[in-house]
Structure formats: structure tokens, C-alpha cells
Design a protein around this nucleic acid. Structure first.
Length: 537
DNA sequence: TTGCAGTCAATATC
DNA sequence: GATATTGACTGCAA
């Protein structure tokens, strides 16, 4: 029935959801003859015997993923090279690969890597990609780049089609595969493909050379032109708009929050990761910021904290016991620049729970900018209302609980990340800890609910997630990958398949689990008082 | 509407 | 000059 419907009344690509697009991708592949029987196992459908979870924990650089076996002939890699009619849809949101700009020039313009010609759009590849070990991939990419003295900008612009800042962020704080949307997976697939390309480095080197040449040329010409050049890039876009001489200054200056302001915001965050409009309003007023700035700050902060947690877990996991010192805090050096406080703010922990609470905005910021009690104080009451909000239901502690701090910061003191709104609500039992990494690693299966189960980080979802995907796989990847077509495996250099990181047992997790228990306990208490929230951990 | 993911791009740092 | 950080923006989903 579905097929009939689909064949007779196909929806336009743009109207399809990711899921909805899948059948079309399959059909396209089938039409291309790339899809043999069972080649694209439907998710969750156990397939072939290859139950090899590709443990990549130790994944050493996927040795050129032995594009081995014949079978893999059909490896997507090949497909990718194959000049076949691009599936128009592929464009999805993006503009067609600008085949234009001879990179030579100013800049970017080179979004599309993958050997230029892609038979299958990257999206298709992504859609079919097995679970990848994002952390491992970025790690390898970083190695390759540094080893070969290749910059992030170049790599980003030519291989990923992203800007330097994005690349930096991506490499430093990769999200777990299962937490990524199709779009978000794209860069990782590209990276994986790039890693698998034996000529990857050379190609980039070439690009580098070309860029240099172009740069020199430009330089020379401009010099001779006597025009000391204004930032070349600048003006390009703007002018075009037609506006007479608007040029630059249409740009609004970037807002830079003062340390005190950040402090105040962080305190507020600890009180309420999801402040009500009213609270935001107050905060904005107090800090003399635009409400949009405050809103943006909260959004950014929440999502960044979330990511931080993930890498911490990953690192903790991979470091195994070493974790004691707690990678968390130790976290990647740079992230650490605690200055930013992300790490520290939560850490205000140092001040012990409640500390932050007590001062709320009162801290430096308050001192500096406001005087009255923190908005929170006033808002306290409303906190309650917020909590229940759907999106936050899973959100644990922070919001409205009277014991915010404890809840607000995890053991490491880091601000507790409001677990992402539980995507799907199914029971996920106990697993709280917002720690994705665990997910990746959690062989959970056996561990006691409290600990392992806690899984996977993103707590709720992940756990569930895994469960859904394959009934039995708690852990994220393995199975998934295993089930996948070998062609894909070869393509993606499976060794990379996520999975297999053994973080289980690491002390950090236990610690967290314990901490969670206590938090849960308190929350339940609080909840029982009046909050109808279903705390999901 | 709200929250989030993914990015960009301006700055800050190294 | 390369990287890292971060405020803002876009698009999407619930």
C-alpha cells in the first residue's frame, strides 16, 4: 500500500522528512543498479552474519580501510566517483555544488570535495552511512592535518565546505553520531571519505599550493594597482546588493559580553537553564543586554555544554581509569580555558552547591550591574511553571528545583546540561547522565541500571534509541554497523565504526551515577511536592 | 512558539 | 597566521 501510494503520489523532495526520503533514495539506488538485494538493510533488520561490531576503540587509523573485498566493489566510494545523474534532490537545502569558482580566487567557494563528481549526493551517502565514530574520525583528521601541516581553513573549505570556525569546533567537540542529524553527519562522512582517500593529503597540498599561487598573484596585481586593498573579501557581497555605497558598516557590530555579564548569565543558567521570557526579560534589563542576546546566549550555552559533556565522556571513556583526575575538568586543554567558565562555571561548584544559588545574579555581575536580587529571586516561583514544559520535561534538576546547584552542576561541577528534550518519550528507565559518550561505549547490557544504564548520555534518548534501533543493542553502534552492507563498511572504513569504546566501568561514570542517584532522590522529593513533572533521566 | 542543530563569521588567543 | 571561542542566524521539528 505504501509503495503504491508513493509511486502514484510522490511528494516533492522538499516536503519529505528525512525518513520520508529514504524510500526515494532507495529507489534511486535501485534504479542505478546500485542496490542489490538487501544491500541496504532496513534499519533494525538484522542482516548477514557480519556481526562484527567493529570495535574501534583502539582504532588506529583505519589503515586505508582495506577497501577490501570485491564485494565492496560497490562501495559507495565508487558510487561517489561515478558520474551519474545527480539526484537533483540532493541539493536539498544546499545550493548545487558550485562548480564554479576556481578556488583560485578569494575563497571558499569550494564546498564540494568528494572527488568533485558525486554520483550520490553526500546526503545519500550520509543516509546510508553506518554509524561512525565521530570522535575517532576527528581525532584522525586532526592528526593528519597537523602531521601534514594543513590548516583547518583549507580543509574546511575544500573538503567539508565549512568555515574554519566550524571546522575547529567540529574537530574539537564532535558530537556522537547518534545525536547528529543527517545534516550534522555530513561533515563526518566527508571526513571519513577523505580519510579513506589515499591521496587525500596530496590533494589538499595541491590545493594549498594553488591557493598560495592565487594569493601571490592577487597580491602582486593589487600591489601594482596601488590599491592597498581593503580587505578583499569584504565588500564583495554587500556592494552587490545594489545599495549605493552602503558597503560595510551595515554589519552590526558583534556583541561581546563582558565577563561579569557572562558570569551573571551562567548563574542564571544554573538557576534555570530554561528561563521564562519574563526571566530573560529581567536578565536582559539587569545586564543591559538585548533580550535576543540573552536568549541566544542560553541557547548557545545549553548546546555547547551538552557537547562538552560528550567529549568529556568520550575522553574519560577512552582514558579508561585514568579518568580519576577526571578528564572532565581536565578536558581538552583548550576547552579548559576555563576562563570561559564553561568548565568553571559549573564549577562554581567549587563554591559548593548552593553557592551560586545564593548569589544568583548577585555575583560580580549583579554587583556590577544590578543591585536588587537577581531576577531569579523574583522569578523563583515561576521556575515551576517552566519545568513542566514539554521540552524540558526531561530536564532534570536545574530548573525549578530548590536544590539547583547540586542539580545544576554535575559532579565535576560543570553545569548540568539539561538533557535534551527527550525526543521520544518511551520509558527509558533510569538512565540519566547526560553523557553521550557513554552511549557510544555502553555495552550497557549488563550493568546495573544505575550505572551503565545511565547511559548513554543523552540519557534518555540514547538509551532508548539504542533499544529501538535494535532491540538488543544498548550500545550505540556496533550492531548497527554490523548489520550494514559491507560495501558501506568498506566505504566508511569501518574500523571506524563507533561503538566499541570501552568506557564502561570507568570511575567517572560510577561517580556520576552515584551523583545522579542523589539528585534524583532530591528531585523526586521536590517533585512530589507539586511538580507534575516527569523527571526523566 | 520554543528549543535545538548546524553554521557563519567576528574576535580572541596561541 | 592558525586556531579557538562565541554571538547570531537559519531552518526544522514538536
Amino acid at each position: 500500500g505504501s509503495v503504491s501510494d508513493m509511486l502514484s503520489r510522490p511528494k516533492p523532495w522538499s516536503k519529505l522528512t528525512q525518513k520520508g526520503r529514504e524510500p526515494f533514495i532507495r529507489m534511486q539506488l535501485w534504479l542505478n543498479g546500485e542496490l542489490g538485494q538487501g544491500v541496504l538493510p532496513v534499519q533494525g533488520q538484522p542482516q548477514g552474519p557480519e556481526s562484527t561490531p567493529k570495535t574501534s576503540a583502539s582504532c588506529s587509523p583505519a589503515p586505508e580501510s582495506p577497501m577490501s573485498s570485491s564485494e565492496s566493489v560497490k562501495s559507495l566510494t565508487e558510487l561517489v566517483q561515478q558520474p551519474c545523474p545527480p539526484i537533483e534532490t540532493s541539493k536539498d537545502g544546499k545550493p548545487p555544488e558550485p562548480s564554479d569558482p576556481p578556488a583560485s580566487d578569494s575563497q571558499p567557494a569550494t564546498p564540494l570535495p568528494l572527488s568533485g563528481h558525486s554520483a550520490l549526493s553526500i546526503q545519500e551517502l550520509v543516509a546510508m552511512s553506518p554509524e561512525l565514530d565521530t570522535y575517532g574520525i576527528t581525532k584522525r583528521v586532526k592528526e593528519v592535518l597537523t602531521d601534514n601541516n594543513l590548516g583547518q581553513r583549507l580543509f574546511g573549505e575544500t573538503i567539508l565546505g565549512l568555515t574554519q570556525g566550524s571546522v575547529s569546533d567540529l574537530l574539537a567537540r564532535p558530537k556522537p553520531w547518534h545525536k547528529l542529524s543527517l545534516k550534522g553527519r555530513e561533515p563526518f562522512v566527508r571526513m571519513q571519505l577523505w580519510l579513506n582517500d589515499p591521496n587525500n593529503v596530496e590533494k589538499l597540498m595541491d590545493m594549498k599550493r594553488m591557493e598560495k599561487k592565487a594569493y601571490m598573484k592577487r597580491r602582486h596585481s593589487s600591489v601594482s594597482d596601488s590599491q592597498p586593498c581593503e580587505p578583499p573579501s569584504v565588500g564583495i557581497d554587500y556592494s552587490q546588493g545594489a545599495s549605493p555605497q552602503p558597503q560595510h558598516q551595515l554589519k552590526k557590530p558583534r556583541v561581546v559580553l563582558a565577563p561579569e555579564e557572562k558570569e551573571a548569565l551562567k548563574r542564571a543558567y544554573q538557576q534555570k537553564p530554561y528561563p521564562s521570557p519574563k526571566t530573560i526579560e529581567e536578565l536582559a534589563t539587569k545586564l543591559n543586554l538585548k533580550t535576543s542576546t540573552v536568549i541566544n546566549w542560553f541557547h548557545n550555552y545549553r548546546s555547547r555544554i551538552r557537547r562538552e559533556l560528550f567529549i568529556e565522556e568520550i575522553q574519560a571513556g577512552s582514558q579508561g581509569q585514568a579518568g580519576a583526575s577526571d578528564s572532565p575538568s581536565a578536558r581538552s586543554g583548550r576547552a579548559a580555558p576555563s576562563s570561559e567558565g564553561d568548565s568553571c562555571d559549573g564549577v562554581e561548584t567549587a563554591e559548593g552547591p548552593g553557592a551560586a544559588d545564593a548569589e544568583e545574579l548577585g555575583g560580580p555581575a549583579a554587583a556590577a550591574k544590578s543591585q536588587g536580587g537577581p531576577a531569579e529571586a523574583a522569578a523563583a516561583p515561576e521556575e515551576r511553571e517552566e519545568a513542566p514544559r514539554p521540552a524540558e520535561k526531561a530536564e532534570p534538576p536545574p530548573s525549578g528545583t530548590p536544590v539547583p546547584d547540586a542539580a545544576a552542576a554535575d559532579d565535576e561541577g560543570r553545569p548540568r546540561v539539561p538533557p535534551p528534550p527527550p525526543p521520544e518519550g518511551p520509558a527509558d528507565g533510569p538512565g540519566p547522565v547526560p553523557n553521550p559518550a557513554a552511549a557510544a561505549a555502553a555495552p550497557a547490557a549488563g550493568e546495573d541500571a544505575a550505572t551503565s544504564a545511565a547511559p548513554p548520555g543523552e540519557g534518555p534518548c540514547r538509551a532508548r534509541d539504542g533499544a529501538d534501533r535494535s532491540s538488543a543493542l544498548p550500545s550505540t553502534s556496533a550492531p548497527a554497523a554490523a548489520r550494514r552492507p559491507s560495501s558501506l563498511q568498506s566505504l566508511f572504513g569501518l574500523p571506524e565504526a563507533a561503538g566499541a569504546r570501552d568506557s564502561r566501568d570507568n570511575p567517572l561514570r560510577k561517580k556520576k551515577a552515584a551523583n545522579l542517584n542523589s539528585i534524583i532522590h532530591r528531585l523526586e522529593k521536590a517533585a512530589s511536592r507539586e511538580e507534575p513533572i516527569e523527571w526523566e533521566f
